[in-house]
């Protein structure tokens, strides 16, 4: 066999080598399963607690919107930075992305957040945008509103109702209201 002229030609011309050289391709480009893509809905019910909006670091990336069949968070791809914090912050596991939920359930991690609303009386022009836009409480509801225009200025009525969603901050035309958020990661002891 090794003396045949065809074998010799094949070895000498290196057909395999030439084919690999000319038709070089890298491995197929597949997205690995652990890739943290844009969060998707798991189908669990959203309770509109606004934790995802509170923790989101990118402006305009997530909004919890009311649809006919209930509340749902919506992710805006041109704004979302795929950090996965909303997935971790959500107490109901409404969102999922990559292995974030899996790791969170395994490690029993979560976030604990405190908020502080501050109003700059010098800048505030009492337009009431913050009070109108606040999604948490409404005037007349049993819990009452978080903010209200009273006595010629914005008054913080129920600061413990605040979820830190920053809607008032976004809608304020001149940065009169700021939401300071202090978020710390917590881990439960293994059961």
């Amino acid at each position: 066999m090794s003396e045949s002229i065809i074998w010799y030609l094949r070895e000498f011309l290196r057909t395999e080598w030439i084919r690999k050289f000319l038709l070089a391709k890298t491995d197929p480009l597949v997205t690995p399963p652990y890739f943290k893509d844009y969060p998707t809905l798991t189908g669990k019910e959203c309770t509109a607690c606004y934790q995802c909006m509170m923790i989101c670091p990118a402006p305009g990336a997530i909004a919890v919107l009311r649809h006919d069949d209930g509340w749902r968070p919506e992710i805006y791809p041109g704004h979302c930075i795929r950090c996965g914090l909303c997935v971790e912050a959500c107490p109901e596991d409404v969102l999922q992305s990559g292995r974030v939920l899996e790791a969170q359930h395994r490690d029993r991690t979560g976030f604990r957040a405190t908020f502080h609303l501050s109003i700059d009386r010098e800048i505030c022009m009492r337009c009431g945008n913050c009070c109108i836009s606040c999604p948490v409480g409404r005037e007349g509801e049993p819990d009452g509103a978080v903010l209200k225009i009273e006595k010629g200025g914005v008054q913080i009525l129920n600061s413990d109702l605040c979820t830190g969603c920053k809607t008032c901050e976004v809608n304020c035309p001149n940065r009169g209201i700021r939401v300071a958020r202090v978020v710390e990661g917590v881990q439960e002891a293994a059961a």
């Binding site: 670091p57 990118a58 402006p59 041109g78």
Partner: peptide, 13 residues
């Protein structure tokens, strides 16, 4: 990337 679409995290006041 997000920046030329929306300004991403830099799109603040």
């Amino acid at each position: 990337g997000n920046c030329p679409i929306s300004g991403c995290v830099y799109n603040r006041r």
